[in-house]
Computed example of a mutant assay.
Amino acid sequence: MRLLLIRHGQTPSNVRGLLDTGAPGAELTQLGEEQARALPTVLDGEPIDALLVSTLVRTQLTASPLAAARRLETDVHDGLREISAGELEMRGDRDAIMAYMTTVFAWASGDLERRMPGGPDGHETFGRFDAVIDEARASGVGTLAVVSHGAMIRSWAGARASNLSVPFVARNQLSNTGVVVLDGGPDGWEALTWMGQAVGGPELAAPLADGPTADAINPDRIPTDSRD
């Protein structure tokens, strides 16, 4: 199955740098709406068979132009929602952002017992995302597009793609409506492109007002052993 992991468009919380992970969440900014309208063109060469979104409104608004252009239904799944910030919800200070991002990247490195302050552990978080992807794969879908969230996509891809290291997903941003393309099946996943660039290419420039879950962080700040 070919898997397109698409981050939602820009929101006011992204602009303000807030950890906004609760439902229903923020809507899109004007720029976010423009980003969403551009997605059908960006993905013009992809033969999408199914389109899934999370329960947070920003993913549904982002997917709407793509669904209309491809005449697809959007299937809503709670398992695709953003990683809960727990006690860090709606904070934008550096300490909170680092606590959040180092936790999700620790999960990607295999430390699934680690718990978000006042929130879930890695088993629960990756388990709900895995369940949605596994169900779609079992249905025989050829190319699946998933509109989800920055931290969820970066950490899950870092954990599941055999050719993505935790330092890579920590250093490389995923801007609003950025796309990660993977290919795989029951035996595992391989990342093909990250925001349009072949995996293994140059690192990406910092995004503008894409929110804390897009930020690059120093992999040395992740307090667990990371895969090379």
Rank of each mutant, 00 (worst) to 15 (best):
S13Y: 07
D130P: 07
G178V: 09
E113T: 09
R7E: 13
A85S: 08
F126W: 11
A209Q: 14
R115H: 05
A206E: 12
G127T: 14
D130Q: 05
T11K: 13
G201W: 06
N172Y: 11
L4D: 08
I83Q: 10
P223Q: 00
G140D: 07
E135Q: 13
A151M: 05
L88N: 11
E73N: 09
L39F: 04
M116G: 02
G185Q: 02
G118L: 03
A68M: 07
A214W: 08
A161H: 10
A131K: 02
M116N: 10
D111Q: 01
I153Y: 06
D121N: 15
A206W: 06
L88K: 10
S13G: 13
Q30A: 15
F126I: 11
D130T: 02
L72Q: 01
P24H: 11
L144D: 05
L66N: 01
G110F: 11
D121M: 02
S139Q: 14
H77C: 15
P202L: 10
G25F: 15
A23Q: 09
A136G: 15
G185C: 00
F126A: 12
A67C: 02
A68N: 08
G122V: 14
S175R: 15
V15N: 00
S64T: 12
A145W: 13
V141L: 10
T143E: 10
T143V: 03
L192N: 05
H77E: 15
P120C: 01
A209V: 00
T177A: 00
V53Q: 12
S54D: 10
V181P: 00
P212S: 13
H77I: 01
D225Y: 10
Y100V: 03
L192V: 15
M90R: 11
A36G: 01
R58C: 04
A96Q: 13
R16Y: 00
N218P: 02
E73S: 07
A206I: 06
L28V: 09
L174E: 04
S175Y: 11
D183P: 02
G92T: 02
L72F: 07
A68K: 14
I97D: 09
T193C: 10
P12W: 12
P167F: 07
Q30V: 10
D49A: 15
V179Q: 04
A214L: 08
N163V: 10
A205T: 07
G196Y: 11
G86F: 12
Y100C: 02
F126M: 10
I6V: 15
V180A: 04
R227D: 15
